[in-house]
Design a protein around this nucleic acid. Structure first.
Lengths: 235, 235
DNA sequence: ACCTGAACACCGTTCAAGT
DNA sequence: ACCTGAACACCGTTCAAGT
């Protein structure tokens, strides 16, 4: 990283270079290490130089989110709405797993950037083209929520832990301590009964591919059923 | 608030009083106003005095989350698993709407506190008592995700905005600007086609009761269908 | 006109001095 | 032993001084 800053020191600073460096820094050292001062140091530049290209830290985060959203694969043409949405959401999930800080950053923002709006626009277009009414599509977009961008809000998500370096260092499974298991027997039963490869219900590695696809298909199948029934909201 | 600090100044400091004051401060002034220094001032106490009762700010936040979770109504006995879960999740939603900072705080934590574990334990118990296998229950808990605690992760949630004072000051509807509508026609169609009482798909007030219940019932109905089919995971 | 060091108004937390 | 002021190591951002 030091030699990276070295080689880049004399190439002129611009918004794109700042955003890419910020994403790399957040990926590697965690979002809590991303300060204007740290980022400037990484770029071999005085902190105030950043403010020529981004108005403030919020705008920096918006730009970082747009970089991430730009990595999501475009929609596959020529397939039904359900596989089209399914593939793209799973692509978004792969991207979000490469940038573990991004989901929390997106949630904290609450204002849509142009890149995010463009992403949503194409998703809505795919649903409409698949025969869903505007009314149903509206509710479906709500019901899918953050899953549209490839992340479900699990109650306890190991990738959210501070200082995590992402999928290159998989979090070790956290076994349920005996005193916890005794106090919360139902949690314990569930944790052991269906424990898959690397985790437990309260431990790490549980937001894995299977759980995500289970929830995704539960939603997509329910939506397809509503579409086939010609469902409309009554209010 | 000043006179509140006045009357409480001489009553001895304890963990409970700190947590309640912290929740009130976060409710009223927003989570970004909750600093150890501000909280101490609100309690008429020197900042360092807090550290006698909470180890650090993270533990303070854990305690605040437990206060909030403690406000959720217990399970209704004597009804089927579906209405039981439904009622409690909707109760949790009411609670979370009183404390808009809580959902983001819960998401950022990632380690379960005893109160949260107790809540999850009783929910799992209700599902198991309703005839769901341990295997299905495990996946269901994942699929429900944060919705179990009464909040869905909407892509854009107005209540997440900094400085919001909660449901007492409802956020005004944000109409879609014409240039945005022109650039993202599908978003515009959805926003206008199914716009309900106070909002648009990218504006405020969209995470309303209807959308939440729509998604909740989509999941609960899908789950009931799996249960009736005797669904088991194949992996 | 551009760049940048110092400064401002904050943080959470440590630590040593005072009682 | 307890309490607490000052201090430390940070923040994001403003602003004025230097080129």
């Amino acid at each position: 990283m030091a030699e990276q800053a070295e080689t880049l020191r004399r190439t002129p600073l611009n918004r794109d270079r700042i955003l890419r460096a910020a994403v790399t820094l957040a990926d590697g050292a965690g979002i809590e290490s991303l300060s204007m001062r740290n980022l400037a140091q990484e770029l071999g530049v005085v902190p105030m130089a950043l403010y020529k290209h981004v108005a403030n830290k919020d705008e920096l985060l918006d730009g970082m989110i747009d970089v991430v959203v730009g990595e999501i694969e475009p929609l596959t043409p020529g397939v039904g709405w359900q596989p089209a949405i399914r593939r793209r959401v799973l692509s978004a999930r792969q991207v979000l797993r490469r940038h573990p800080w991004a989901s929390l950053a997106i949630e904290s923002r609450s204002t849509a950037t142009p890149a995010v709006l463009g992403y949503l626009d194409s998703m809505i277009g795919a649903l409409r083209a698949g025969g869903l009414s505007a009314d149903l599509t509206h509710h479906v977009m709500h019901a899918m929520g953050s899953r549209i961008l490839g992340f479900s809000q699990e109650l306890f998500d190991a990738s959210r832990q501070a200082g995590r370096t992402g999928p290159t260092v998989p979090t070790p499974p956290a076994p349920l301590p005996p005193e916890v298991a005794a106090r919360f027997p139902h949690v314990a039963e569930i944790a052991t009964a269906a424990a898959h490869d690397t985790g437990t219900v309260v431990g790490a590695g549980c937001d894995d591919q299977f759980e995500f696809e289970f929830a995704l298909d539960l939603l997509l199948d329910g939506i397809e059923r509503l579409r086939a029934q010609g469902w409309t909201s009554t209010h």
